[in-house]
């Protein structure tokens, strides 16, 4: 029987090599491409015949737009509205990537640390540049020395602030990756129980793990939404920190 981790294996579909680097088109790239196409399809169908009285698909698109706009309004304020397109595409990309992974025989690209780390590292660079361009380098470095603290405490507090700033991309990426990978591994392990117990007890024994599997699938869909939401809201918080610096 296949190992529960074999679902995360990268398989090359079209091998490409440039300057000795392997940049092949893999099943991971295919899943990402499918996610992007799905987003384009979802938005274009929803906005095809846009009218004042929205149709069902238009309501869904408007709902997702308003959800992100509300999140930015709550967490950043009016200055954050220019980052709406960025956060909206980020949220949709991760959400549909997570949901696409829930389909049988598909591939969950969010369960690979390198993908989520690349996304979160770019967010980290973006946030740092926003802060430096908005406030200048000196004021940005002042962000690491909290005001109103005795100078002796700064020896301890500055490293603490620097480490917690540097750990942002790691915690952002590990959160998404760990949740998706753990969830999908658990689904496969319980799926293995269904087969083994069912084969050894005339199918009756398989009923309990199947019920468990159905419940876990529901939980996994909730987690798909929640992780996309957490990723988007933390990006909002980081951009808010960069714009306001305290």
């Amino acid at each position: 029987m296949a190992s529960p981790l074999s679902q995360f294996e990268i398989k090359t579909i079209v091998p490409i090599e440039v300057f000795g680097y392997d940049i092949s088109f893999t099943n991971s790239s295919l899943a990402m491409l499918a996610t992007v196409l799905l987003i384009i399809l979802f938005l274009s169908i929803g906005l095809k015949n846009s009218s004042i009285i929205p149709s069902k698909s238009q309501t869904l698109v408007e709902l997702s737009y308003e959800f992100i706009a509300g999140m930015i309004g709550d967490n950043i304020g009016k200055e954050g509205m220019k980052y709406l397109s960025f956060i909206f595409s980020l949220f949709m990309f991760i959400l549909l990537g997570n949901l696409l992974g829930m389909l049988p025989y598909s591939f969950t690209w969010t369960s690979h640390i390198i993908v989520t780390f690349a996304i979160s590292f770019f967010i980290f660079i973006l946030v740092t540049f926003i802060a430096i361009f908005k406030h200048g380098l000196f004021k940005f470095l002042g962000f690491f020395a909290p005001s109103g603290v005795p100078k002796a405490m700064l020896i301890l507090l500055v490293p603490i602030e620097v480490i917690s700033y540097l750990s942002r991309p790691v915690s952002l990426s590990v959160r998404l990756f760990a949740n998706m990978m753990a969830g999908h591994t658990l689904l496969k392990v319980i799926g293995g129980f269904v087969f083994v117990l069912g084969a050894n007890s005339f199918i009756i024994g398989g009923a309990l793990p199947v019920a468990f599997l159905i419940a876990l699938t529901g939980l996994e869909i909730v987690i798909a939404f929640l992780q996309a939401y957490v990723f988007a809201i933390l990006t909002c918080l980081y951009i808010n920190d960069a714009i306001h610096l305290h």
Binding site: I163, S167, V170, S171, V174, R175
Partner: peptide, 8 residues
């Protein structure tokens, strides 16, 4: 996750 990531 925050606790683990700062240590890493």
């Amino acid at each position: 996750v925050d606790l683990v990531s700062t240590i890493i």
